[in-house]
Design a protein around this nucleic acid. Structure first.
Lengths: 192, 192
DNA sequence: CACGAATCCTAGCACCGCTAGACAATCAAG
DNA sequence: CTTGATTGTCTAGCGGTGCTAGGATTCGTG
């Protein structure tokens, strides 16, 4: 039995290695550089090994995305729980979100830009994704305002943040004014 | 001389054909289906002909994006000029923007999702892109509120719309609530 | 009509995601 | 300890991609 357990452990370890390497490569040189050949070479296995862990490249992207969603949720909760008062809490959330996207562009792309084969907003949505949304909802729900569904408000606020991330990434928005934009967004959208 | 002019006309016509065909193919089957081979076959020329007009696929995407930007500007201006009062004007702008994205998903992708090799927010940004932003600015500038730069406000509003488009496209937001979200966004962000 | 130039296509490169089938290592049974 | 089956891994290759070199062909001109 111990032998099987060891093998299983080694397999899980190698899977982690694949995901971590894919992420690393993507952050270093962009997702275009993450080819199955290069990835296989980096983990010092042959290509087919990747396919014994994942159905294909898309699933590898999905795995990176899930890991990223979990980290995003942690980052958001850490920021919000450290802030005092609704106004500051929402601002902290926004900053944490934008900061995460800026620090992990490839992970952010895996989450929202690329096709990782993940189901969003459905029953079979993976837990980390649901939880990341829940982290936003916990904080944003209290500033939705009267007569506005917390879920709907969270979606709109989230969409705004996502738009800022995308346009900033595309070079459309200068990073210098990021703080101003966040303040504007928080002041206008949130009802205190 | 007339011969050269004719050739030049035919060349320009073929270039329009390439861009239109690429767009059509992308709207029908998605950008992944727009390969240089398929595109060449559809226009009934060989692959290398494409490269006598464009540096590569990316430039073709860019050409589709520019055409789309011009159409977007027209759509936005038409919607805003037909509306009465600042509140209704902004709401009309938002609806027109989201409607354009919904009706021309491939064009919208070419503009903001894919790499079309276009420079944004710089001196050498192509005119259609500048003009599309100008169309937004014309309307949104008047509801920025005191002490808020019109450009900054337009960026934030735009980013919010873009986020809604992206998340809706990804299946993250249910289209049924689109109207509600627009109302929320307009009511909160714009200062009347 | 013949020549030079412009135009276009055939064929091919290196790379992609993905997979079949050969091979080697490992384990259980005799 | 040997055998046989199972598991794991790799080599080699398929059809596709964007892109290009170089030959063939058409075309306008003298």
């Amino acid at each position: 039995m111990s032998v099987q357990e060891r093998k299983q452990r080694e397999r899980a370890e190698r899977e982690r290695l694949i995901v971590a390497t894919a992420r690393e490569l993507a952050e270093q040189q962009g997702w275009d550089a993450v080819t199955t050949r290069r990835l296989a070479e980096r983990i010092e296995y042959s290509q087919p090994v990747l396919y014994s862990h994942f159905r294909g490249k898309r699933e590898i992207i999905g795995a990176v995305a899930l890991k990223g969603a979990a980290e995003l949720a942690v980052a958001v909760r850490a920021a919000t729980s450290a802030a005092n008062g609704p106004r500051e809490r929402v601002a902290a959330l926004a900053r944490a979100y934008l900061d995460f996207a800026a620090r992990n562009p490839a992970v952010y792309d895996a989450l929202f830009q690329l096709d990782g084969g993940l189901a969003y907003a459905q029953e079979d949505t993976p837990q980390p994704l649901k939880d990341a949304f829940a982290a936003l909802l916990e904080c944003l729900g209290e500033v939705a305002g009267d007569g506005v569904q917390p879920g709907l408000f969270t979606e709109v606020f989230w969409a705004s943040l996502h738009g800022l991330v995308t346009l900033t990434r595309a070079g459309r928005l200068l990073p210098e004014d990021a703080a101003q934009r966040v303040e504007l967004l928080v002041d206008r959208l949130a009802v205190m």
